[in-house]
Design a protein around this nucleic acid. Sequence first.
DNA 1: CGACACATGTAACACGTTACATGATTTG
DNA 2: CAAATCATGTAACGTGTTACATGTGTCG
Lengths: 173, 173
Amino acid sequence: MSIRNSLLALLSAAPAHGYGLKSIFEAGTAGAWPLNVGQVYTTLSRLERDGMVEPVEDSDDDRRAWRITDDGRVALAAWYEVPVDHRSTRDELVIKVLVAVAAGDVDVAKVIQTQRVATMERLQQYTRHKMAADPAVTMPWVMLLDALILRAEAESRWLDRCEERLGMAAASP
Amino acid sequence: MSIRNSLLALLSAAPAHGYGLKSIFEAGTAGAWPLNVGQVYTTLSRLERDGMVEPVEDSDDDRRAWRITDDGRVALAAWYEVPVDHRSTRDELVIKVLVAVAAGDVDVAKVIQTQRVATMERLQQYTRHKMAADPAVTMPWVMLLDALILRAEAESRWLDRCEERLGMAAASP
DNA sequence: CGACACATGTAACACGTTACATGATTTG
DNA sequence: CAAATCATGTAACGTGTTACATGTGTCG
């Protein structure tokens, strides 16, 4: 629902047309998540179907502009008010490790090691980016980097802890 | 693809039937992500269509057991070998905050505050669970708790940092 | 006997993703 | 003029999710 709600959010500030929404979304998320234009149009159709947006008629323009409806604003407010809950989001790394343990026939230590190497490499990349970035750097870009760094650090710590726990379990039956 | 790959992973250890896979998956992920049985059957059909699994014929049993194929093992190995990359996964919280900033007409501080309250509450819950859990507690359950705690801590720190940055930006144009 | 776990499956739909077709406008 | 950007849209498909229909076995 992230894209759906994002479009709604961007339209709440001002009406816009499909292509514009793509640009605003990508700029606002620092280009981290490229958005296929086609998806914007399909998502807008679905939002219209659900009464969340409506076309703005303007005979002088062959582009189709969209406006958020009152129902749309209600849905948007709900998105902002209800906190994100990670328990309900399946985390692929956690699943991968837990399932590897459950399966029993997998070299979990190797999986953890592979992941950690990648995570640490990325962590260095992010840090380098942040250093290189002058204070004049854009807001979304820094905020995104912060998020990636903190997440990578947490992940690295989790991997360490998993290794410990699995080592202990292997030592004592 | 998490469920798809998880089923493949569980079948790599031993053949199993649909209902059994549901149970093993849920036990292996500490009940955190309940799996609708129907989904197991649809996913198995798709895996069969793609040549990843095949039915085990056994006339003595009216249940349908499944076995992983060689192609399935190749796909599974790829899953284990390719590290998870968070840059490609859209993080709903990050999107929400960045989009709120981009939209301009949203009380971002309030969104951050709401999220932080929820995050801190959950953090306490997790910690309590961990304390209550005797050392005899199951492996997947502790590993999952570790993951949730570390993620919540990282999230809380990120929210703090966002608040700071936004405060600074508001102070100096 | 009734409730619950075991067991299989289908139908319908949600969102997300890519590829494709098509054309106007801008800019080097 | 050619290439890039702006601009709209459709078709087809992928995974995930829920609701529904249906039946057997077991245990208190």
